[in-house]
Simulated scan of single mutants.
Amino acid sequence: MTGDGSFERDRTYITTRITADGRDGFPVEAGRYRLVIARACPWANRSAIVRRLMGLEDVLSLGIAGPLHDERSWCFHLDPGGRDPVLGIETLREAYDRREPGYPSGITVPAIVDVPTGRVVTNDFERITLDLGSEWAAHQRDGAPDLYPEGWRDEIDDVADKVYRDVNDGVYQCGFAAGQQAYDKAYQRLWARLDWLEERLAGRRYLVGDTLTEADVRLFPTLVRFDAVYHGHFKCNRQKLTELPALWAYARDLFQTPGFGDTIDFAQIKAHYYVVHHDINPTGVVPRGPDTSGWLSPHGREQLGGRPFGDGTPPPPPPPAERVPRLGRAG
């Protein structure tokens, strides 16, 4: 927290990269690494989406931390015996401590772990998705999209930076504000940016160009969590996502695109925010709503044109072990 009660995110990450040439000591190798995510976490959601879009399921295994944790670490309480079946650990902190004993910063997801040593290689969530789309090219599926095309990178970076500052992190600045003035400033920035996005997406299918890009991958995880947790739990309550015509249609369009909605587990999302954030929700009561069946309703965005995967193709369905529950009505 800053002096005026504003929330300030710790941006200290392990920036080691896994690259095709192995210049940081970690070359891309099929089967060597494990991507650890939590279905609840929006930052981890990005890497789960890109892994799906690139078709890396057979070469980069997926560990899933449960939605509940304490101040020390994410843990694998959903796995048999409470241990990750590949890494053999109960908490993600164990992999961080193997990288640096007494690791002093946040134990965050996503994290990529070197399976032979059990050490975290990187938790730099922004770099992870970019590298999955580029450095892992030799292992990508046929038809994998280019999410960071060279000719659009400046615009992608500009839009993604605005989205990160005011929306991805903006909802947290609202939710964790420790003073009215800090909250009011964050709230105003959030809604000014959401209004900007509503206008931008009214006449175009995707944020940049006519295909899916890294910018869309970065916005979607916040939008899909908005009505379920951010609107009420984080006091981002000027309007619901469902009351913003362009953004709601855009979010449904992405949700129904293979690789996006099939990474979303609303029950785990709500359990994490409403149970773990004791200071915001001390009772730990998890709301029954909202109704999620609307995510599968027609969005009508096809009339705006665009080609979701560019010259590529949709990914196949996720492996059976990675499938999430089907949507249904709340209650």
Rank of each mutant, 00 (worst) to 15 (best):
D184G: 07
K185E: 14
A186P: 04
A186L: 07
A186N: 00
Y187S: 01
Y187L: 07
Q188Y: 13
R189Q: 15
R189W: 09
R189D: 14
L197A: 04
E199W: 09
E199M: 10
L201W: 03
G203L: 12
Y206N: 04
G209H: 05
G209S: 10
G209D: 05
D210V: 03
D210H: 09
T211I: 10
L212V: 05
T213F: 04
E214C: 11
A215Y: 00
A215W: 00
D216C: 01
D216L: 06
R218N: 13
L219A: 06
F220Q: 01
P221R: 09
P221S: 10
L223W: 05
F226N: 02
A228W: 00
H231M: 00
H231W: 08
H231Q: 09
G232D: 14
G232W: 06
G232V: 11
G232T: 14
H233K: 13
H233E: 03
Q239A: 14
Q239C: 13
K240Q: 15
L241H: 01
L241S: 06
E243H: 08
E243V: 08
W248D: 14
W248Q: 05
A249N: 11
Y250P: 02
R252V: 01
D253N: 14
L254R: 04
Q256A: 09
P258D: 09
F260Q: 01
F260C: 06
F260E: 00
F260G: 02
G261P: 04
D265G: 06
Q268T: 07
I269P: 01
Y273G: 03
Y274C: 00
H278Q: 15
H278E: 15
H278C: 12
D279R: 15
I280D: 13
V285L: 14
V285Y: 06
G289H: 10
G289L: 10
P290M: 07
D291W: 08
D291Q: 11
D291A: 05
G294H: 05
G294T: 06
W295T: 10
W295I: 11
S297H: 13
S297A: 15
H299F: 12
E302M: 07
E302Y: 06
L304I: 08
G305M: 10
G306T: 04
P308L: 09
P308F: 08
F309W: 13
F309G: 01
F309Q: 03
F309R: 02
T313N: 07
P314N: 07
P315V: 03
P316L: 11
P317H: 08
A321P: 04
